[in-house]
Every structure is written in structure tokens, then in C-alpha cells.
Write a protein that binds this DNA or RNA. Structure first.
Lengths: 106, 106
DNA sequence: AACATTTATCGTAATATTACGATAAAGAAA
DNA sequence: TTTCTTTATCGTAATATTACGATAAATGTT
């Protein structure tokens, strides 16, 4: 594959790509969906809801967290995950730019 | 890796994941950025603007197109690419749901 | 017709992602 | 302390992505 070339793009382009990548798997979309609708941000419940093993869910949660879309707080023996509003706002505003600057064409 | 498990998720979850995946690479973000700001949807210009080979750019364009975020019209010997507004609207409304239903927590 | 230009596709190597089981780590409960 | 519960991490195999050069396909030009 040669090399990664990611540093040939701007920080902003990489940031948006990172947010998008975090959502680029249906399991992670499902996690976000679950977190957005559950009033209490219960954590291990996610494993029960998804058709994936505990270790796989943990990996997906880590990706969402490192992208900045989700945050987790240790709560005794378990962890409370929830959506990180500032990350979502940032992603939404970046996407919104495309919609507003979008030129009619073709 | 076992099997893909994508059909264990809803069509909606897979659709949003597909949109996100299309944007999950800085080169594709750069293409979208370029298309959104260029009034004339010039096509082969994209290759000149990006630090990637023609074949690689073509691959990225195909992914954006098959996801429904970009459309292309043959224009003589070249192709005119531009953003597909309906795809963007759909993605934005799906993402918007998360923001509006997002419960405060932690 | 012969040639040039533009884009798509094929073949490929390098790398990254996905998924699982096994195991570790850390606090709660006995 | 021992045990249970919960989550994270390691090791791994299977699969997918990324990137390029080479080549094909299609239209325009001479």
C-alpha cells in the first residue's frame, strides 16, 4: 500500500475523517443510537443489546471514545458511557459547512 | 475474523455507517470539500489537487458515488462529479436525530 | 484511420479493521 | 482473603482498505 499519506491532508480533513470513521460500522452506530436514547447511560447493557462478544464491544467503545464521540466514567466496578456532546457538535458543524456551501451543479 | 455480522444490524444503521465510511478517509473529505466549493464541478481537476495517483482518486470517487454522496455525469471524454444533495440531506437528518434525542448524563 | 486525452478497472502488495476467546485488572460482595 | 462481576487488553485469523502502475475503454482530435 505504499505509505499512509494521511499527513498530506489538513488537520481538519483528518479530524472529520476520524469522526466519520468512528461511525463507519453499524455496531458503532447502534451503540450511539442506544446511548442517545437511554436516559441512564448504562454501560454493560450495551453488550447485552448487541450481537457481539464483550471484547468486540469493548473495542468498538474504545474507538468511539478515542474519536471523541463518546466518553466514559468509571463507576465502581463498571463504566458509564455516554455521548460526548462537544465532539458531536464539532462534527455536525463541519458537515454543515458542506451543506451550506454546496453549489448547485450538473 | 469470523463473519461480517453486518446483517445483524438494521438497514438504517447500515445506511448511516455507509455514509460515514465514505467520509472516513481524509482524501474523500478533501474531494467533498473541493466539490462543495468549486462552482463548476470540474472533474479531472481533482486528480491535480490531491497528492494521489489518478487510479487512487478514481477509487475514492467510486466509493463516494456508491455511497450516494456524489454523483457523476459523463461529459464528452471526461466526467463531471458533484455532490448529491439528497444523500447529504439524508445523512444529516440521521445524524441530527442523535443530537436532538441526546440525553444529558454523567 | 491513427493518435491523444480522460477515466475506469485489474492485479498487487502493504496495512488496517473486525471478531473472538483467553486472560488480566480492579472493585464489590461473601 | 476468596470469589464474583465487570471491563480492558492480548493474541490471532479472516477480511477489507489503500495505494500504485499497467492497462483497458471511450470519446475527441488530427
Amino acid at each position: 500500500m505504499g505509505l499512509s499519506k494521511k499527513d498530506e491532508f489538513t488537520a481538519k480533513q483528518n479530524l472529520l475523517a476520524g469522526y466519520a470513521k468512528a461511525l463507519a460500522h453499524p455496531a458503532r452506530v447502534a451503540i450511539v443510537e442506544y446511548l442517545s436514547t437511554s436516559q441512564a447511560c448504562m454501560c454493560g447493557d450495551i453488550v447485552d443489546v448487541l450481537p457481539l462478544s464483550q471484547s468486540t464491544v469493548s473495542q468498538h467503545l474504545r474507538e468511539l471514545k478515542s474519536a471523541g464521540l463518546v466518553k466514559g466514567e468509571i463507576e465502581g466496578t463498571s463504566v458509564c458511557y455516554c455521548l460526548n456532546e462537544s465532539g458531536w457538535n464539532e462534527m455536525q458543524s463541519m458537515l454543515g459547512e458542506f451543506l451550506t456551501t454546496m453549489k448547485k451543479c450538473c
